[in-house]
């Protein structure tokens, strides 16, 4: 049936090879502190956080068929939740992460409840509206968030660059693993079913709106975890973290990586963050032109993204 071909590239590779590749990549990444200096390690940690958030968006866009243009709101919710917890409650990074995830779930329930009633392009614009309203709320709640100048007085995590990198890598690996398991489990299959044929799912007795809301909650929670990492890395968060430009960036990572997969957007996320740093260092203001050209070239040369394969005849 369709479910088996939907996952494109991943489905073709045997489960064992996939697990081996995953483990090898993890070992390689875990060894990075022995190869990279402090700055590049910090950059890579940021890239991994963005990669995880891109994967969470791929879950929503590719697997759930819900194209969001407001995903950065979850980044912001996670980052502010973690930052405020660090400032007022505890220096424990794990607890901060849990609070961020809880905040992501809550925000997903609140906004997703409404958002999942729209479809396609209208979903895209509705989530854009949620994102922009969230930016305004963050900017204007000066007493809590520090306003547009950001939440600056977050205490340091106390972790050195290497330890923080390992912490970030662990969070990204677990978060990614959760996404994969959920996608391949029964809930993931019903989410895919709701994407492919809503009427049929409803006829089979599924609560389609609820299934779609579940997709939003999963993606939102994982993205909030990524947001917490972004905050913990810099111990800073500002309303610019939630802006439409960041949502667009995440969506671009998904498209570049291939929206039928989760690993593709993860890799594209890391790659794009690193590429931006390299090109803007080397080329100054021309980095933006390079990025624009890259998008155009990728659309033609990688029609299904870096790692996506044709979704076999799924109309």
């Amino acid at each position: 049936m369709r479910e088996s071909v939907m996952r494109g590239g991943d489905a073709r590779m045997s489960r064992l090879t996939r697990r081996l590749a995953f483990a090898a990549a993890l070992v390689l990444l875990a060894a990075m502190p022995y190869m990279l200096d402090a700055y590049r390690l910090d950059l890579l940690a940021g890239g991994l956080a963005y990669g995880l958030m891109a994967a969470s968006l791929a879950f929503l866009v590719g697997h759930g068929g819900l194209p969001s243009l407001g995903h950065a709101a979850f980044l912001g919710v996670g980052a502010y939740a973690a930052g405020l917890t660090a400032k007022h409650v505890t220096p424990n990074v794990a607890l901060q992460l849990l609070v961020a995830i809880a905040a992501g779930v809550l925000f997903a329930l609140l906004t997703g409840w409404f958002a999942v009633r729209t479809r396609g392009f209208f979903f895209l614009m509705f989530t854009l509206a949620i994102g922009e309203i969230a930016v305004q709320a963050a900017t204007r709640s000066t007493r809590v968030t520090g306003g547009d100048n950001g939440l600056a007085d977050i205490p340091p995590t106390g972790l050195d660059v290497v330890t923080f990198y390992w912490w970030a890598l662990a969070v990204v690996a677990v978060g990614f693993g959760v996404l994969v398991l959920l996608r391949d489990g029964p809930l993931g299959r019903s989410i895919a079913g709701a994407r492919e044929n809503e009427a049929r799912m409803a006829a089979l007795g599924y609560h389609v709106t609820g299934v779609r809301l579940a997709a939003v909650v999963i993606a939102g929670a994982v993205c909030a975890a990524g947001g917490a990492l972004v905050e913990q890395k810099d111990t800073f968060v500002a309303p610019t973290h939630l802006e439409i430009g960041v949502s667009v960036l995440l969506l671009i990572m998904v498209l570049l990586g291939g929206r039928q997969t989760l690993i593709g957007p993860l890799i594209a996320g890391v790659g794009l963050i690193v590429l931006r740093s390299v090109t803007s260092t080397a080329l100054g203001e021309l980095w933006l032109l390079v990025e624009g050209a890259l998008f155009v070239i990728c659309v033609y040369l990688l029609p299904n993204g870096l790692l996506g394969r044709r979704r076999a005849q799924a109309a």
Binding site: L251, L255, R259, L288, E291, G292, A293, F295, V296, V299
Partner: peptide
């Protein structure tokens, strides 16, 4: 739509930066 969006977004960056 999403592939078209990526393409036209790239073109938009190229045109406006130009």
């Amino acid at each position: 739509h999403l592939d078209q969006a990526l393409l036209t977004m790239g073109l938009a960056i190229l045109l406006s930066e130009f």
